[in-house]
Amino acid sequence: AIERGSKVKILRKESYWYGDVGTVASIDKSGIIYPVIVRFNKVNYNGFSGSAGGLNTNNFAEHELEVV
């Protein structure tokens, strides 16, 4: 089962992080479509409006993740 702290591989082909491994930061139990927040070591794009980097978290559905 996917739980907080799990290392997961991203299976969503259109994702910037496809094939990468991230760490589960949290799981939303409220029934939303993409409840699993995954944190990565790298950012997906340069930040804007003065922020240092881009996003390094993204929401995924459990079926888009594979525990490694």
Rank of each mutant, 00 (worst) to 15 (best):
residue 64 E to V: 04
residue 26 S to V: 06
residue 66 E to T: 06
residue 24 V to S: 00
residue 27 I to M: 04
residue 22 G to W: 04
residue 67 V to C: 04
residue 65 L to T: 01
residue 23 T to E: 10
residue 40 F to E: 01
residue 8 V to F: 03
residue 55 L to C: 15
residue 34 Y to E: 05
residue 54 G to H: 08
residue 24 V to E: 00
residue 57 T to K: 07
residue 16 Y to I: 08
residue 37 I to V: 14
residue 18 Y to Q: 02
residue 30 S to N: 07
residue 29 K to N: 12
residue 31 G to K: 10
residue 39 R to V: 15
residue 9 K to L: 09
residue 48 F to R: 02
residue 43 V to C: 15
residue 57 T to D: 08
residue 20 D to T: 10
residue 3 E to I: 12
residue 68 V to R: 03
residue 21 V to A: 02
residue 21 V to I: 12
residue 23 T to I: 11
residue 29 K to T: 13
residue 3 E to S: 13
residue 13 K to T: 08
residue 39 R to D: 06
residue 21 V to K: 01
residue 33 I to N: 12
residue 35 P to S: 11
residue 40 F to Y: 01
residue 58 N to E: 15
residue 12 R to L: 06
residue 7 K to E: 06
residue 9 K to M: 07
residue 28 D to R: 05
residue 20 D to C: 14
residue 60 F to D: 00
residue 32 I to Q: 13
residue 27 I to E: 01
residue 12 R to K: 06
residue 55 L to T: 13
residue 49 S to D: 15
residue 21 V to R: 02
residue 61 A to H: 05
residue 24 V to I: 03
residue 27 I to A: 01
residue 42 K to Q: 08
residue 47 G to Y: 06
residue 6 S to W: 12
residue 59 N to D: 05
residue 56 N to Y: 10
residue 26 S to W: 14
residue 28 D to L: 11
residue 41 N to F: 08
residue 59 N to T: 08
residue 33 I to D: 13
residue 49 S to V: 12
residue 51 S to I: 14
residue 13 K to V: 13
residue 57 T to Y: 13
residue 37 I to A: 10
residue 54 G to P: 08
residue 46 N to P: 15
residue 20 D to Y: 10
residue 47 G to N: 07
residue 36 V to T: 00
residue 48 F to N: 14
residue 53 G to F: 08
residue 55 L to E: 14
residue 1 A to D: 08
residue 4 R to Y: 10
residue 19 G to T: 03
residue 38 V to P: 00
residue 58 N to Q: 15
residue 12 R to I: 05
residue 53 G to M: 10
residue 4 R to D: 05
residue 21 V to E: 05
residue 7 K to L: 13
residue 2 I to H: 03
residue 22 G to I: 07
residue 19 G to M: 08
residue 63 H to E: 12
residue 20 D to N: 08
residue 40 F to R: 00
residue 68 V to N: 02
residue 45 Y to G: 15
residue 7 K to N: 07
residue 2 I to S: 02
residue 7 K to T: 10
residue 17 W to Q: 01
residue 28 D to N: 07
residue 43 V to K: 10
residue 2 I to N: 01
residue 7 K to F: 12
residue 48 F to E: 15
residue 2 I to C: 11
residue 30 S to P: 04
residue 23 T to Y: 08
residue 29 K to F: 09
residue 55 L to W: 08
residue 25 A to I: 15
residue 46 N to M: 10
residue 68 V to D: 03
residue 67 V to E: 04
residue 52 A to P: 12
residue 9 K to G: 02
residue 34 Y to R: 11
residue 55 L to D: 12
residue 10 I to K: 00
residue 45 Y to W: 08
residue 13 K to H: 06
residue 57 T to L: 07
residue 45 Y to M: 15
residue 56 N to H: 08
residue 60 F to N: 02
residue 21 V to M: 06
residue 56 N to G: 06
residue 9 K to R: 14
residue 41 N to Q: 13
residue 29 K to E: 11
residue 40 F to N: 01
residue 51 S to Q: 10
residue 31 G to R: 04
residue 43 V to E: 14
residue 19 G to S: 04
residue 6 S to P: 03
residue 67 V to Y: 04
residue 63 H to W: 13
residue 8 V to I: 01
residue 44 N to F: 14
residue 55 L to K: 10
residue 42 K to G: 08
residue 42 K to I: 06
residue 4 R to M: 10
residue 28 D to K: 05
residue 61 A to T: 03
residue 50 G to I: 06
residue 36 V to F: 14
residue 26 S to T: 07
residue 16 Y to W: 06
residue 39 R to T: 13
residue 50 G to P: 11
residue 49 S to A: 12
residue 61 A to K: 06
residue 18 Y to S: 03
residue 5 G to M: 01
residue 5 G to F: 04
residue 8 V to E: 00
residue 61 A to W: 06
residue 13 K to S: 06
residue 2 I to F: 08
residue 12 R to N: 05
residue 56 N to W: 11
residue 30 S to T: 12
residue 49 S to N: 10
residue 62 E to G: 05
residue 9 K to N: 03
residue 25 A to G: 04
residue 62 E to F: 15
residue 39 R to E: 12
residue 11 L to G: 03
residue 9 K to E: 02
residue 48 F to A: 15
residue 65 L to H: 00
residue 68 V to P: 02
residue 29 K to M: 11
residue 7 K to H: 13
residue 8 V to Y: 00
residue 53 G to P: 12
residue 3 E to V: 12
residue 44 N to I: 12
residue 49 S to Y: 13
residue 66 E to A: 08
residue 34 Y to V: 02
residue 1 A to P: 13
residue 32 I to V: 14
residue 67 V to W: 05
residue 66 E to F: 07
residue 60 F to H: 00
residue 38 V to F: 01
residue 16 Y to R: 04
residue 64 E to Y: 03
residue 18 Y to K: 01
residue 47 G to D: 15
residue 25 A to N: 05
residue 56 N to P: 09
residue 27 I to Q: 01
residue 28 D to C: 09
residue 6 S to R: 05
residue 4 R to S: 09
residue 32 I to N: 11
residue 32 I to P: 08
residue 59 N to A: 14
residue 25 A to S: 11
residue 24 V to M: 02
residue 51 S to R: 01
residue 36 V to H: 00
residue 33 I to Q: 12
residue 56 N to E: 08
residue 12 R to H: 03
residue 35 P to D: 09
residue 53 G to N: 08
residue 43 V to W: 13
